[in-house]
């Protein structure tokens, strides 16, 4: 990474963080105003730096990986240690955001944004609502007081031992199978994979806009056959191409790289083409969850026996009439 750019971004992020911290902690109106101004300035600075950053060489994303994974882990730790459930939820938002960043590093753009929208936007807000609903202090004096069950953890030692065992096993597995891990794919590999996916999804309904250049095919008998309508995307080196018969000679139409399908397209294809039933089932599950939530959370109204009978149009039961005479009951 360019140190200048990094320095710039760092400075901006420091300003932004300080602004955030001030926004959270500051008591006075003036301080809040200053913090807001500083934060907006930092945000504008970031935006202005986006256009300036050019890809000049192969970037090493280790820094980002370490950065975001550290954030995720640190925030998750904060999340489970925070005595206040609301803080926990907010730290979890941070975890979601940093893991979305990790998704980006893994070229899963769609999932990254979906994660932020669904988790941070929807689910966590629901949590917040419930928290606010439940944490209403019955007494104003109790407002600042934390609930005992939030302050004192339960069986931390046992939990840590279990966690230790699990982590030890997982890490040992990972260490042990490091050599068996697939080698990191090259950029061309991932591009070819994308094209292949695209090809199998669409049946090669390419448009002419994909075409980068047309060169004569040198080995026309490649694979023994050639399809005249150019349905099959083929690869050589980093290039993807289709073969088209023109007269007696075969032309190789190289496809332009930027027209390769994006991650969003590919995920959409995969979802619809490979897992249609699962998709429908997911919808049904969500529907059922909605029903369940509605039915569970509505306020229950307890009706007495007589009220139930009245609602059903039946006569009330007079318990007094049914009670046996105590004297008569005892006499033989």
């Amino acid at each position: 990474m360019d140190p200048k750019l990094f320095l710039t971004a760092s400075v901006i992020c420091i300003f932004a963080s300080v602004a955030m911290w001030m926004l959270v902690k500051a008591n006075t109106r003036a301080a809040k105003g200053i913090a807001a101004i500083v934060g907006i300035a930092a945000f504008l600075g970031l935006l202005s730096n986006v256009g300036m950053s050019q890809i000049e060489s192969t970037q090493k994303p280790e820094v980002f990986f370490y950065l975001f994974s550290l954030i995720a882990i640190a925030c998750s730790v904060m999340m489970i240690t925070s005595a206040k459930p609301v803080y926990s939820a907010l730290y979890f938002v941070m975890v979601v955001l940093s893991s979305a960043s990790l998704f980006l590093l893994l070229q899963a753009e769609f999932m990254a944004f979906a994660l932020i929208i669904v988790y941070a936007g929807a689910i966590l807000i629901t949590y917040m609502f419930v928290l606010m609903l439940a944490q209403q202090a019955s007494d104003p004096e109790m407002e600042q007081e934390q609930a005992e069950y939030d302050v004192n953890p339960r069986e931390p030692a046992a939990a840590c031992i279990v966690g230790f065992v699990m982590l030890t096993l997982l890490s040992s597995m990972i260490f042990q199978s490091m050599s068996d891990m697939p080698t990191p794919p090259s950029a061309s590999d991932s591009r070819i994979a994308a094209w292949q996916t695209f090809d199998s999804m669409l049946g090669s309904k390419q448009e002419i806009a994909f075409v980068q250049r047309v060169i004569p095919a040198e080995n026309a008998g490649w694979n023994g056959v050639h399809d005249d309508d150019g349905n099959l995307i083929r690869f050589e080196g980093d290039e993807a191409y289709i073969q088209i018969a023109q007269g007696e000679e075969t032309l190789r139409v190289v496809l332009e790289d930027r027209f390769a399908p994006s991650n969003v397209e590919l995920v959409g294809f995969d979802l619809i083409a490979k897992f249609p039933v699962s998709l429908e089932l997911a919808g049904v599950i969500l529907l059922m969850a909605m029903f369940g939530a509605v039915i569970l959370a509505r306020r229950q109204i307890e009706l007495s026996e007589d009220e139930v009978r009245e609602a059903a149009g039946m006569a009330r039961i007079s318990f007094e009439a049914l009670e046996p005479d105590s004297n008569g009951g005892e006499s033989p």
């Binding site: 998750s76 489970i80 893991s99 339960r154 939990a159």
Partner: peptide
């Protein structure tokens, strides 16, 4: 992350 979540689940009341 998973283990931290697990520990959290086990410790938080």
């Amino acid at each position: 992350l998973f283990v931290i979540g697990l520990i959290g689940f086990l410790t938080r009341r």
